[in-house]
């Protein structure tokens, strides 16, 4: 009996700090943002209830949709940039010699840098006067291609997608390497026996074996795009003329610059809903593919 109470006390008091910290700082904010989304509130004074006003305002705001579109650009760039490059590298880096380990470690390196550092380095690379990119174009005689890379609304978003791709190839590479190493060697032998090699083996044996991992990386590209806030803040802060605005930076700019906490809460809630829809949608798509 005594051990029973001791056990209970230990479980209760052992979990209490974790549960409190976790609930207060992770779970409660989600519901609070949904709640405050219904109010007009400047941070001081009375919050005024206004129903779905904030939500309809956001959904009627062109910049909100532009941000969503830019988020989708990041998703597209990630899916068609990060995933193929990581997969190709993984196929070439299966041996684990010192040289291959060096390549792998290099590809992963940007992951340990602060996004502020990454943002400033790439802003300097893109700098119209002193930037490396324009300098390089001058060197190879393509001076007329020079541009103010981040001030041209038509291309700014794609230029920002490049450091995002560069930054996040590492984890995908590691995931693909793990998936490739779990393919039983009998499969390789069987494929060789059947005379399959090179591209054909890749398409008919290797890719189907790691298809699950590919699907996981695509989901990660989607959820990862919602996290790209720091880089935008440092490099363009959403400009020029909202051309590089992402949902997260839209939320930040329409909250903390103009003190509209109710509106910001509504946008936060919309971001959570969008991310859940995207994740659920991609899960659903995958399940259907599994059934067939």
């Amino acid at each position: 009996m005594r051990t029973f109470t001791a056990k209970r006390a230990f479980v209760t008091f052992g979990l209490l700090p974790s549960i409190i910290i976790y609930t207060v700082f992770v779970i409660v904010p989600v519901f609070w943002s949904a709640y405050y989304g219904f109010f007009d509130w400047k941070g001081i004074g009375e919050a005024r209830f206004m129903g779905f006003g904030n939500f309809t305002e956001a959904l009627g705001d062109d910049i909100f949709w532009l941000s969503l579109k830019n988020n989708l650009i990041v998703v597209v760039a990630s899916v068609f940039g990060q995933v193929p490059i990581a997969l190709l590298l993984a196929l070439l880096l299966r041996k684990g010699t010192w040289f291959q380990r060096f390549v792998r470690a290099s590809v992963f390196m940007p992951m340990v840098l602060s996004s502020v550092v990454i943002g400033i380095i790439w802003s300097t690379i893109y700098h119209p006067q002193i930037g490396l990119l324009n300098g390089l174009l001058d060197m190879v005689g393509l001076g007329e291609w020079k541009k103010a890379w981040l001030s041209d609304p038509a291309i700014a978003m794609w230029m920002i997608a490049i450091p995002i791709i560069w930054n996040f190839i590492g984890p995908y590479l590691i995931m693909f390497l793990a998936a490739l190493s779990s393919i039983p060697s009998e499969m390789d032998d069987a494929a060789a026996m059947d005379g399959a090699s090179g591209t054909r083996k890749l398409i008919s044996v290797t890719l189907p074996m790691i298809w699950d991992t590919i699907k996981v990386t695509i989901v990660l590209c989607i959820s990862g795009s919602l996290k790209a806030f720091d880089l935008i803040y440092v490099m363009t802060n959403g400009g020029p003329a909202h051309a590089t605005e992402l949902l997260a930076s839209y939320m930040y700019n329409s909250t903390f610059n103009v003190f509209r906490y109710g509106y910001g809460s509504a946008v936060s809630t919309l971001i959570i809903i969008i991310s859940l829809i995207l994740i659920a949608g991609s899960q659903l798509l995958m399940r259907r593919r599994n059934q067939t």
Binding site: V28, S33, A248, M251, S265, S268, I271
Partner: peptide, 12 residues
């Protein structure tokens, strides 16, 4: 998504 908690956390 971590960023979606910024506003409510700030208020809190």
């Amino acid at each position: 998504p971590v960023h979606s908690t910024l506003v409510p956390l700030f208020i809190m």
